[in-house]
């Protein structure tokens, strides 16, 4: 693995480091299993030694808000999975800044993970730099 691939933002011409698999999360916790199932795919890919990036966009940014709890019948949210990401060496986590703004949220609201905020051009560069994208 090259140094470029391990450095979060020290990238190529597009300003983004290349990687194997970008997992794009577009749904919030509880309402569906997309978020949990996407996070599980990201962890498995990392466990397989792949260079994984996570992009929170759309309602996926809701996954990063503090104060989440289990739902009715003990339904799990996603915060326990987020806490496990570091253990799986998933360290490249990005948030679509436009999705945050659209919801009246700021970087200060995003507390559950260390993330990099990306504007439009950077989101494009990120999806270009990774060889594959899985969306959830």
């Amino acid at each position: 693995m090259s140094d470029v691939m391990t450095a979060p933002l020290a990238g190529d011409d597009a300003g983004m480091a290349a990687g194997d698999l970008l997992v794009m999360l577009r749904h919030g916790p509880h309402g569906s299993s997309w978020l949990r199932e996407g996070l599980e795919a990201a962890m498995v890919a990392a466990a397989f030694g792949r260079e994984v990036g996570l992009l929170f966009t759309g309602d996926g940014v809701m996954a990063l808000l503090e104060g989440q709890q289990v739902g009715p019948l003990g339904q799990k949210g996603s915060d326990n999975l987020l806490a496990a990401l570091e253990m799986y060496d998933v360290e490249r986590c990005y948030v679509d800044a436009a999705a945050l703004r659209a919801r009246g949220l700021t970087a200060q609201d995003v507390t559950l993970l260390p993330v990099t905020l990306l504007e439009h051009d950077e989101v494009v560069a990120l999806t270009t730099a990774f060889s594959r994208v899985l969306s959830f």
Binding site: T57, G58, V123
Partner: peptide
Amino acid sequence: SRIHDDVLNAMGPED
């Protein structure tokens, strides 16, 4: 839904 906003935000000029 507003999903098309997210799509357009992620599309490059050649996409």
